[in-house]
Computed example of a mutant assay.
Amino acid sequence: MSPGTAVGQAVTWLNDPLNWTNPGGILDRLTEHVTISAAAVLLGAVVAWPLGVWLGHSGRGGAVVLAVSNVTLAIPTLALLTILPLTFLGFGQRPVIVALSVFAVPPLLANAYTGVRSVDPQTRDAARGMGLSGWQLLTRVELPLAVPYLAAGFRTAAVQVVATAALAAFVNGGGLGQIIAAGFGLSIAVGGGQVLAGGLLVALLALAVEGLLALVQRVLTPRPLRRAGRSGDGAVTAGA
């Protein structure tokens, strides 16, 4: 099949209203994809943020953060998606969410740690001089100043998870990957356009999530910290 033919078939497939509204159509798969991705990122944040923030506050966790990030990055997501359904989690969305949450941990953990450690030592000293306890220092000074890093880490993790969640189709986990898998189940001459359409939908969703979270990050970050937030974006790349 020529590229032009595949593109034409993809446009035709996307313009068919039944492919959007039928059971198992685009709207159903999109809802599944967003649900799986959101649950995975939130689960990753519940695990990674408290650990990263506490290690950053204590100042003794650099090696731990590096080790955890390296270990989680070294585990292939597809391998986890293959292994976890054979455990008590079974097939479906639960093993997919767990596998994707592991994939989300490195940027969340690294940015939480980096955000807290990036606080100016003089600011910490001034806070302690005012009589703030360790907990008050963390909640009133370090965490607010780490907001750009936390938001940037969440954004990176979300985009990565959305893009990777298409692999859920391998274990019947739902999502837009099911559209791609169904296209591959047909001959290339027949299903090539559907495969291309599914890939395009995943890419567009990832771009939409990136844009939306970039806007949310900017709104939630205090104006004086927005420049620091740009530095936080760079930390995401290094941390991830």
Score class of each variant (00 low, 15 high):
M1N: 12
S2L: 10
S2H: 08
P3G: 02
V7R: 01
G8N: 13
Q9I: 09
A10L: 08
T12A: 15
T12H: 10
L14S: 04
N15R: 14
D16G: 13
N19M: 09
N19G: 09
G24N: 09
L27W: 10
R29F: 07
T35G: 12
T35Y: 12
T35S: 15
G59Y: 06
G59C: 12
G61M: 07
A63L: 11
L66N: 07
A67R: 11
N70W: 11
V71A: 14
T72V: 13
L81S: 06
T82L: 12
T87F: 07
L89E: 00
G90K: 06
G92R: 00
Q93H: 13
R94V: 14
A99G: 06
F103W: 08
F103Q: 08
A104Q: 02
P106L: 04
L109P: 02
D120S: 10
D125R: 10
M130I: 09
Q136A: 15
Q136R: 14
L137T: 06
T139F: 06
R140V: 04
L143R: 05
P144V: 00
L145N: 12
A146N: 12
V147Q: 08
P148M: 01
P148G: 11
Y149N: 11
L150W: 08
G153V: 06
V161Q: 02
V161S: 02
V162I: 15
L167G: 01
L167D: 00
A168S: 15
A168H: 04
G175V: 08
L176S: 00
G177D: 06
A181P: 02
F184C: 02
S187N: 14
I188D: 13
I188P: 03
A189K: 09
Q194T: 08
G198T: 07
G199N: 12
V202E: 02
A206V: 10
A208E: 05
E210S: 06
L212F: 02
L213V: 13
A214D: 03
R218C: 08
P222M: 07
P224I: 07
R227P: 05
R227C: 00
S231N: 11
S231P: 00
G232T: 10
G234N: 15
A235F: 11
V236I: 02
G239E: 05
A240P: 01
